[in-house]
C-alpha cells in the first residue's frame, strides 16, 4: 500500500510514533490500520494514492488528467519555487489525484486531495481536475466521490483560484441534473474556498473523526468572534452537531459505507 508519509519518527524503521498520543506503534500494525492510531484512534493524513488504495478495489484505479500542471500566471512571489519543491517532494503535478475506480465492483468517478502538496490548495489545476471529475460522473452516469484535504483556494493564483469555486460548484449542478450522486468526504483539514464551494453542496457529506473543518482560519474566526468558540470549534464533531454534515465515519468503515451509499443512491442508474 502507498499510504504516504507515516509520522516523522523512524520513517523507515519498524516503529512509528503517533502524532497525537506519542505512543510508539508497530509500523505494520499502524499501516494495516490505514494510519489510524490503534491506541488513541487519531486519523493521520493519507497521501493521495494512499487514500485511493485504502478506499477503492485493489488495482481498479485508473488515473486521468495526471499531466495537468500549474503555470505561474500571476508571476507570484516564490510560487515557482514552492511548486518545484512540492513536485519534487510528492512526484505529483498537483494535490488532486483523479480518475475512475471501482468500489465493490461499482464504477465511480473519483478525486482525492493530497495535503502534502502545497496544503492541498485549489488553483487552476485542482479546479479543472475536480470539474472534470464531476463532469465525467455526470456524462458517464457514474457516482462521484471526492475526498477533500485542503487549506482552501491557492493564493498564488489570485482571482483565478477564486473562480475555481464557481467552476467546480457549477459542475456539481451538472451531476444533479444528470441524477448521479456526489459524495464528499471531509478529511483533515477541509477549509475555506473548497468548503465554501463544491464540497458543501454534495448530496452526502461524510467527515473523518476530528478532521478540521471550517470557513475562516481559526485565528481570523476567533478574532472576529463576539461569541466564545466552543472547544470543538471547526472540527468534524462541531459541524455534525451544527447540522452541516451527514455523518462521521472512521476510516476503517469508509469503504463499506461509501459502497453501500453508491449502491443505494445510484439505484436508478444502470
Amino acid at each position: 500500500m502507498r499510504l504516504g508519509k507515516a509520522p516523522r519518527a523512524e520513517e523507515t524503521g519498524a516503529f512509528v510514533q503517533c502524532q497525537n498520543c506519542r505512543k510508539t506503534l508497530f509500523r505494520k500494525e499502524f499501516e494495516e490500520a490505514l494510519l489510524v492510531c490503534p491506541s488513541c484512534g487519531h486519523h493521520h493524513r493519507l497521501s493521495g494514492m494512499g487514500r485511493i488504495d485504502a478506499t477503492f478495489d485493489p488495482d481498479s484505479f485508473h488515473e486521468i488528467d495526471r499531466e495537468l500542471s500549474s503555470l505561474d500566471p500571476l508571476e507570484f512571489p516564490e510560487y515557482r519555487e514552492k511548486l518545484e519543491g512540492a513536485m519534487k517532494k510528492t512526484g505529483m503535478n498537483d494535490p488532486i489525484v483523479s480518475g475512475t475506480a471501482q468500489l465493490e465492483g461499482i464504477l465511480v468517478s473519483v478525486a482525492v486531495s493530497d495535503f502534502s502538496f502545497m496544503g492541498g490548495s485549489m488553483g487552476s489545476v485542482a479546479g479543472e481536475k475536480i470539474t472534470r471529475t464531476l463532469e465525467r460522473a455526470a456524462s458517464g452516469g457514474m457516482p462521484a466521490i471526492i475526498f477533500c484535504a485542503t487549506g482552501g483556494a491557492r493564493m498564488q493564483e489570485g482571482l483565478l483560484s477564486l473562480m475555481q469555486m464557481a467552476k467546480t460548484t457549477a459542475a456539481v449542478q451538472r451531476c444533479r441534473e444528470a441524477g448521479v450522486p456526489f459524495i464528499c468526504i471531509f478529511t483533515d483539514p477541509t477549509m475555506a474556498g473548497v468548503l465554501a464551494s463544491y464540497a458543501s453542496v454534495a448530496d452526502v457529506i461524510i467527515a473523518e473523526p476530528k478532521a478540521l473543518v471550517g470557513f475562516a482560519g481559526a485565528r481570523v474566526s476567533k478574532q472576529a468572534q463576539v461569541v466564545k468558540a466552543p472547544d470543538d470549534f471547526q472540527t468534524a464533531e462541531f459541524v455534525l452537531k451544527s447540522g452541516m454534515i451527514d455523518r462521521i465515519v472512521p476510516r476503517r468503515e469508509m469503504r463499506s459505507t461509501l459502497a453501500r451509499l453508491v449502491r443505494m443512491l445510484g439505484g436508478g442508474m444502470t
Binding site: 460548484t169 449542478q173 468548503l195 453542496v201 463576539v226 466552543p230
Partner: peptide, 26 residues
C-alpha cells in the same frame, strides 16, 4: 469577506455561499 465569526460557522456560512453560487447556475 463573508462573516467569519463563530455563529456564522455554526450556521453553515460555507454551505450558504456554495448554495448561493449553485443557485445562480440554476
Amino acid at each position: 469577506a463573508a462573516d467569519p465569526g463563530v455563529e456564522s460557522e455554526s450556521r453553515g456560512i460555507s454551505e450558504a455561499i456554495a448554495a448561493s453560487i449553485m443557485k445562480m447556475f440554476e
